[in-house]
Amino acid sequence: MTIILFDGLIYASVLAVLCVGLSLTYKITSVPNFAHTSFAILGMYMALIMSKVIGLSVYVALPVAFAASGALALFMYYGIIRILQKKKSSLISLIIATLAFDMFMIGVLNIIADGVRNTYRVNSRDFTLRSLDTVIGGDGGLPLVFIVTIVLLAGLALGLYFLLYRTSFGMSMRGAIENESLAQTLGINTRTIFCFAWFLSGGLAGMAGVLMAMWFQGDPSLAAIMLPSIFAGSIVGGFSSIYGAILGGLLVGLSEVVGTSVLIDLLGYWVIPYRPVIPFIAMIATLLVLPGGLIQLITKYQKRRKTMMRKSKEEEEGDSVGT
């Protein structure tokens, strides 16, 4: 049971971190990035290289993966997406470009995997770094990666809140997302802000990839396998909401792990391979029933409150400016 708990919580948290990045770039660029998971796989291989090839602690890979995957995301935004947007390409062209970049990265990541195996004689497919992790309290105790994952997600949620709501840079960022040209006329360099956001999104995905490899398995094929799950998480949360993404990611992640284990009890082991269908169902159901995602339910309530506030205020003051 504890294994399912660890599995579920680690997977769900990793998914939530990935969903946050996906939603962040979607909010900014209005393009669903089908190459987002490849940032995570790059992180996985950074972990493999740092630990098995160079021989450092696997946790050293966290900042390295952050930098490497962040740089990759930045390259993708600055070198491809922005150029296409400048050329006024259609949304579909942009989506195809992200798919193309994903294909490109499948090639790159597999070449890295083959290269590591052939050059250093290190297993680079379906590898796991779980044995390298520290377990607190000896066998059957608390694995460190579990704590790190939870701390990363919590830190991300708090950090983003602090950044977006307590710093003027974050306010500029929110402003630039809401209304880019207004932000520009007010002297904000929106390009820098968007580049930062893409870097952050890629970097977070890279760290998520390191954590994945430390508990589950690492393999280039995971890019395609995990993609539906993170899209499902983001969409279930409401695609353009950061906190919705955390909620959706956790929900989809847990329902994948826990839901499958419940279904095994009910129906037998044959259901295991159909686990990937769970996020699809969650996603399609959300799109058809509640296209705005879970966050829509929350904001609907908030909006109603806001309009009520505004109405009562206007009744008090009329539409006057001065007093």
């Binding site: 491809i80 195809i96 798919l99 994903d102 294909m103 490109f104 499948i106 090639g107 790159v108 083959d114």
Partner: peptide, 22 residues
């Protein structure tokens, strides 16, 4: 090459698609 050539296929197709789009 120290890797399977099939991956060059992905590299070339993905890269080419992006170049065509641009």
């Amino acid at each position: 090459l120290p890797f399977d050539i099939i991956w060059l296929d992905y590299l070339a197709l993905g890269g080419l698609m992006i170049l065509v789009l641009i």
